[in-house]
């Protein structure tokens, strides 16, 4: 595996102001310290990968970024100004769209109802505000077509879509609502090869529109395929951030596993991990 990829990567310029900057974020759940001081930033048009093993705190960290959790301590700067999110609505309004690991879509609801969930278009009839279903359906069909998904109809239930298609619906939704930052929590972990490459291609397309993408994965190959920068999280702490080209897949893999253990394991397995 080389670090070559067909995607065109931006030069991560250090002088571009980050859209969001998180400094020394800590999050405690009772006696569990899930995050012990994590710093992270996202610049426009880059794909910043957040890597780490299961339980490293990746999901917890992005939840403090998307308003689901309030950090126990630490600072958040949004476009240079300090900001505090009380709930997910605040973060969504600010332009942070999140596709959560397990809970992105509601299978029983139609694609169009899911697409506009929490952001329903309305029109007034006789002074009463009604759901603008026609608009919702048209936009959904159009956006899905752009993403390469042919729906049977806007009323098709999300439950009938494949895992990759669901991720794509969620991403399309975020982009449509003008997200400045798109957070994807392990979008590829449950997908097969074809679906994974579709999602990675979508990430690339989104990034080209100037949106900052946070791509969480515990798969180094997926991350290296699209990432511009890589931050590794281990047991609630950052092990550092590397720029594309500065680091080899092997080094990244070692960092994720916390160094030595994997090196030893690799010896005994003959370099197959």
């Amino acid at each position: 595996m080389t670090t070559d990829s067909k995607f065109h990567h931006v030069d991560p310029k250090a002088d571009v102001q980050p859209i969001i900057e998180m400094r020394n974020i800590e999050k405690h759940f009772g006696r569990v310290i899930a995050l012990a001081g994590v710093s992270f930033d996202v610049r426009p048009g880059e794909c910043h990968c957040l890597l780490g093993d299961n339980g490293a705190g990746k999901s917890t960290f992005i939840k403090t970024m998307s308003g689901v959790h309030q950090p126990t301590s630490g600072e958040i700067f949004f476009e240079g100004k300090p900001l505090h999110f009380d709930d997910p609505r605040d973060a969504i309004t600010a332009g942070i769209a999140t596709v959560h690991q397990h809970l992105a879509m509601i299978p029983l609801m139609s694609v169009s109802r899911n697409f506009f969930m929490g952001n329903e278009p309305t029109h007034k009839v006789a002074g009463i505000s009604f759901l603008d279903k026609k608009k919702a359906d048209e936009v959904t069909m159009e956006e899905m077509r752009k993403m390469g998904i042919n729906l049977r109809g806007p009323d098709q239930a999300v439950g009938t879509l494949s895992g990759g298609e669901r991720q794509t619906v969620a991403i399309a939704r975020a982009v449509y609502f003008g997200a400045k930052i798109l957070i994807l929590d392990e979008p590829t972990s449950a997908l097969g090869v074809r679906q994974t490459s579709n999602v990675l291609a979508t990430i690339d397309r989104v990034r080209k529109q100037g949106i900052g993408v946070v791509f969480i994965s515990h798969n180094v190959r997926h991350a290296l395929a699209v990432g511009d920068r890589f931050t590794v999280l281990n047991r609630g702490k950052t092990l550092g951030t590397a720029t594309r080209g500065e680091i080899t897949p092997e080094e990244l893999q070692d960092l994720m596993a916390g160094g030595q253990e994997l090196a030893q394991l690799e010896g005994s397995l003959g370099g197959t991990v």
Binding site: D87, P88, M109, M117, T122, S129, L131
Partner: peptide, 23 residues
């Protein structure tokens, strides 16, 4: 036919996902 109706479906379909979407 209303926005609120969509929230009813969402709240019962998956409360966590609905909350994360701002419902």
């Amino acid at each position: 036919k209303t926005k609120f109706g969509n929230w009813i479906f969402a709240a019962g379909g998956d409360a966590e996902a609905a909350r994360n979407s701002g419902v």
